[in-house]
Design a protein around this nucleic acid. Structure first.
Length: 640
DNA sequence: AGCACGCCGACT
DNA sequence: GTCGGCGTGCTC
């Protein structure tokens, strides 16, 4: 009895767009028992041997040529589940990228020894009490739905001071108690550490794993395999964890989807929020998009009734939110070039002093790290440039000569290129100088700094001042007595389309760390909508405004963009070949450098899929005919 | 990407 | 007559 061999459809580990399809191979008799969908194999491809993932096993092929045999079984471990394969394909399509590129993100590097480790049985997870979800309208109903294996979808705005890791852990526990799995995605390792602790506390030991690059390859693969083998049902991690191979998925959640860490840095640059939404759609899982703030993208989910808006009642918001006071920017750097305490308006000063008097820590958010990261000519205010390379000059300490931020040259004898002035004044004050000023203002108080390069995990206990840049504010035990948001103009005047939205997100993330009976002072015009949204703790209102503004202007997420970057003329050539019925509107091109330019394409949202697939096809054809490559980016960060 | 096949100029 | 240019085209 000579049964014909089964056929494996293999995704070849080659990133070329023209090879972005599956290739069929015969499965040798002696591998037949082990070659299963999701496992790694090596196959001959052209002249060379390459590795790949078996995406499907089937009895026959459509291929009319001569099939080759699989060369080797690398590992029988099924690391790409059918669900993840479909997800990766969808994400590749959405972003005009290749399956291989997305699988490289989804599946961590193999560690042979980890595969030999013992397996364990999944431990049961108890259904949680509703926790503090009852503070949100429909919060308890959401958790109940998870316990009943339904698939609710919500855009959740957390109250100030909310223990969001605990809430996410409760949602995961509710899902797992019903026998389904959960995937929780957070922006960075610090958030993941907090979520990890909350999961451990609420679920008990060994019910979950964390997944992030920071674990290192071995631990990462171990976590990944525990999920793939069904030893745990709950995975928490950073952006790549959105692809975690959790079986029988019941919930996908993402925290703080406005954080740009959620965007992968490798082609095709998928956003974890889009991965999570796609996954919920494909697998029928529940979905939770949570944060203190709200992105226009999340608001769109509410507007289209894909998700419900889950917020607390006004009463709950009032009692949870600290007093938030806007105060106009009184600081005048020119009037007081020595700095001193001129930057702290009286209200801010008093709020800080009151908190310290109660032995409560104070958080001061400043937009930039360093001492004085930007200076200008004292006389004519022209931005001070390096005499050597024209880079931006900055100050590294008190009474020290300006230093170039690019080439490091010390400008001992600064001379303004415009007016010949020899003195500089600060344009921006960094965290270091702010800490120095505050140490002078509060001589008996500990002043510490937390910045991207030197991050603090937790605020000191008791009376202390923490000066932090956005995104790295350490939580304080019991909350901060005061939160001061300084130099807000630097956030609000950024050129990006998302400047206001991003400012609100950063402010809310900082103010959320305050005690409910504390005070937050925002040094900004209280008449601005973005400041109003902060004071009222109403990011949904602001997100809706943003969404409407962007709709009028034809910006994302209502319109979908693609950025085409390539050698001069090539992007336009590619765009010219697009079918007219796509209705793609070209914007630009603008020069990137002497040889490169960048063209934006805009289509209606519902034509986004067609645009991506057309671009993918065009890219494949161009690569096939050895044309200069044009980089495609869907929803480029600077636009979206 | 590699590496084939494939049809036109100057060389043993 | 042959060696070799790199222009399309395929890789299960």
């Amino acid at each position: 009895m000579n049964e014909s061999p089964a056929i494996a459809a293999v995704c070849i580990d080659q990133p070329l767009p023209q090879l972005d399809r599956l290739f069929d191979y015969l499965i040798p008799e002696d591998m037949a028992a082990q070659v299963k969908p999701g496992c790694r194999v090596r196959v001959r491809f052209g002249r060379r041997k390459v590795s790949g993932f078996v995406i499907a096993v089937k009895p026959s092929t459509d291929f009319t040529g001569k099939l080759l045999w699989i060369s080797d079984l690398v590992s029988p471990e099924p690391v790409v589940t059918a669900e993840v394969a479909a997800l990766a394909r969808a994400v590749a399509d959405r972003y005009a990228g290749t399956l291989t590129d997305v699988l490289r993100l989804a599946v961590p590097e193999r560690r042979v020894r980890v595969e030999a480790e013992n397996r364990s049985e999944p431990l049961p997870v108890a259904a949680p009490i509703d926790g503090d979800w009852k503070r949100y309208i429909a919060g308890e109903a959401f958790l109940r739905a998870l316990r009943e294996t339904k698939s609710p979808k919500a855009v959740w705005n957390a109250l100030a001071g909310e223990d969001w890791p605990a809430r996410l852990a409760e949602a995961a526990a509710a899902t797992a108690s019903a026998g389904r799995g959960a995937v929780l995605v957070v922006p960075d390792q610090a958030d993941l550490d907090r979520l990890d602790a909350a999961l451990e506390a609420i679920l008990g030991p060994d019910r979950h794993v964390t997944l992030s690059a920071q674990l290192g390859p071995t631990k990462r693969y171990r976590s990944f395999l525990k999920a793939a083998r069904g030893e745990v049902r709950i995975v928490a991690g950073t952006r790549a964890a959105a692809f975690a191979p959790v079986a029988d998925l019941g919930l996908v959640a993402i925290w703080d989807d406005g954080d740009e860490s959620h965007v992968d840095r490798h082609a095709p640059y998928p956003h974890a929020r889009e991965v999570v939404l796609t996954r919920a759609n494909l697998s029928g899982a529940a979905c939770l998009v949570g944060g203190y703030g709200r992105t226009p993208q999340a608001q769109l989910l509410v507007e289209t009734e894909w998700a419900v808006s889950m917020v607390a009642s006004r009463d709950e918001i009032r009692s949870a939110t600290p007093r938030i006071v806007p105060v106009g920017d009184e600081s005048d750097l020119e009037r007081d070039p020595s700095g001193g305490t001129a930057r702290l308006p009286t209200v801010a000063w008093e709020a800080a002093r009151a908190a310290l008097a109660k032995h409560q820590p104070v958080l001061v958010q400043v937009p930039r790290r360093g001492y004085v990261p930007a200076v200008s000519c004292q006389r004519c205010r022209t931005r001070a440039a390096c005499p050597n390379c024209s880079g931006p000059l900055r100050l590294l300490g008190a009474r020290r000569a300006p230093v170039c931020g690019w080439c490091g040259v010390v400008a001992e004898d600064f001379r303004c290129a415009e007016c010949g002035g020899t003195r500089v004044r600060a344009i921006v004050i960094g965290a270091e100088r702010t800490a120095e000023e505050l140490a002078q203002a509060f001589p008996d108080t500990q002043v510490v700094e937390s910045t991207g390069v030197n991050r603090l995990d937790a605020a000191p206990q008791g009376a202390a001042v923490v000066v932090a840049t956005p995104g790295v504010e350490p939580p304080a035990q019991g909350g901060y007595g005061a939160v001061l948001l300084l130099d807000t103009w630097a956030l609000l005047t950024r050129a990006e389309l998302t400047a206001s939205e991003e400012a609100l997100r950063r402010w809310m993330n900082a103010v959320a760390l305050a005690r409910h009976d504390g005070t937050a002072v925002v040094v900004a015009d209280g008449g601005l909508a973005v400041v109003q949204a902060l004071i009222r703790w109403d990011p949904a209102w602001f997100a809706l405004q943003e969404l409407e503004d962007r709709s009028e202007l034809g910006f994302p997420p209502v319109m979908r963009f693609a950025a085409l970057t390539g050698p001069n003329g090539e992007a336009e050539k590619l765009a010219a070949d697009l079918p007219a019925d796509l209705g793609a509107e070209a914007i630009g091109p603008i020069p990137v450098d002497e040889h490169t330019e960048r063209l934006l394409l805009r289509v209606r949202r519902r034509d986004g899929a067609a645009l991506a697939s057309t671009l993918a096809k065009a890219t494949a054809e161009r690569a096939g005919s050895k044309a200069e490559p044009v980089r495609i980016q869907i929803d480029p960060r600077e636009i979206a």
